[in-house]
Design a protein around this nucleic acid. Structure first.
Lengths: 248, 248
DNA sequence: ACCATCTGGATTGTTGACAATATAGCCGAC
DNA sequence: GTCGGCTATATTGTCAACAATCCAGATGGT
């Protein structure tokens, strides 16, 4: 029974335990901390990634440790850890004693990342085909159907692109392979230059992408691993082709 | 002229500048620092990797920050950065407020890593086929020839395995795709359980591996990308099959 | 004996300070 | 003007100390 008023209280700090998780103690960690109990380093890394997606940071930009520390309200320690995390993902580049910069990829390097992500996604699709369940298939079909609806709509290309990402996420979940899924995402984001591919500007490109996704869904339903892998790569290539059309 | 006795010397520390790179100042960084001017964090990460390969650290082992700091003669700061690097490679696992442990992979997770590495190596082989140069081909053939010589020899299986690694490294170099090459290595080492695969115990397994490598070399020579990718995966599968024979 | 509770030590998370290095700007020699 | 060296500042690398948290063993009640 927790009604006990706690008679023998030696350390005062324990008192705040019962009052639910007082957050004002540590000074507002992170900027918009979406996570629950993450450590500063991870929060900082996630926030840098967000600013990267929002085009606040651009490839080649210098990242000053103290600046990031001030911006996110932490000290340089966690910032340095965050930079190491991002370096391992090839998102930033660290030169000893020279500091960190947002990775600026050559076209060749970007191509490598995209190709790598494509074959990994192909592998995920193959695995998804081997264990396709009704639930996942249903979700994928619905997402693909929305893709079709968006072909003729007058929306910004980014919305269409985001929908393809959602389709991809479903396939990754269906693969039941979290490690491979993580790799696909990490490698893809390792190419910051090709971030918000504003491709899919013409209805032709969209129709092509929809056709590929629909075929992939069909391959998964018939549990055809070879076809699934091939089409998994194809949807990737479609997206890149569309992206290259707008930013060559 | 540096003969000037420096009349207006505001900060004294600049004095040690002229005497060439006194190394005794900072207390012997690293344990056996093979690198030249690396920062502590990278040295620590590399040393942990080495100890991992030498089976000093085993999957599931707890990594105490202070222990590592003492062992390598640095403070906890660089150690924490090193752990972040290793975590990003999935070599160690960090739980907030609970510390770091050497990743212990389930069979499923290990399989995922190996499969991912295999398809990435297949991609590298395809790229190598597209740009195969005489020099690389020659080197590869020589390495593969040594592989054949090692089939019947009474050597420890590890030596044969290492030789296949050397062959793989040549292919990765031939691919001219450093990013993909790095991914192959990182993903492969992300599965510490399958480290020193002591496979290739029987001459049958070795003969099989040699045949695959020889076929891969031939595919590269004839610039057949499809075959190269297929065989690139096969040599990977051979290695894993051999490893599974010894430690199921 | 069993259970919850309470310690005290061990370990992680974070910070501020200091040292080492690089960089941009200044100055004088030519 | 241009070049090379010097200096002041900015920035990174490192460390030791403090705070927060977790964990194993002790403690006490039933």
């Amino acid at each position: 029974m927790p009604t006990d008023p706690r008679p023998t209280l030696t350390r005062a700090k324990v008192a705040s335990q019962s009052t639910a998780r007082a957050p004002a103690k540590t000074k507002m960690r992170g900027e918009s901390g979406s996570g629950a109990r993450r450590v500063s380093a991870e929060t900082v890394a996630a926030n840098v990634m967000r600013l990267l997606e929002e085009r606040v940071f651009l490839p080649g930009d210098r990242l000053i440790e103290q600046d990031l520390a001030d911006r996110f309200g932490v000290s340089r320690g966690p910032v340095r850890e965050a930079l190491r995390i991002l370096e391992a993902k090839s998102v930033v580049r660290i030169e000893p004693m020279r500091g960190a910069t947002i990775a600026r990829l050559t076209d060749e390097e970007a191509r490598e990342s995209v190709d790598a992500s494509a074959v990994l996604f192909g592998l995920a699709a193959r695995r998804a085909a081997a264990r396709a369940e009704a639930k996942g298939l249903k979700a994928l079909k619905e997402h693909v159907a929305r893709l079709r609806e968006m072909i003729g709509l007058e929306i910004e290309p980014k919305a269409f692109f985001r929908q393809t990402l959602r389709c991809g996420r479903v396939v990754l979940e269906m693969s039941g392979s979290p490690r491979i899924a993580k790799l696909v995402v990490d490698v893809r984001f390792g190419a910051p230059d090709y971030y918000g591919p504003l491709g899919f500007t013409t209805s032709d490109l969209r129709r092509q992408a929809y056709a590929s996704w629909r075929a992939l869904a069909a391959a998964l339903e018939s549990r055809d691993g070879d076809q699934a892998e091939r089409l998994g790569r194809k949807v990737h290539d479609d997206a890149m082709e569309a992206a290259l059309k707008v930013a060559p």
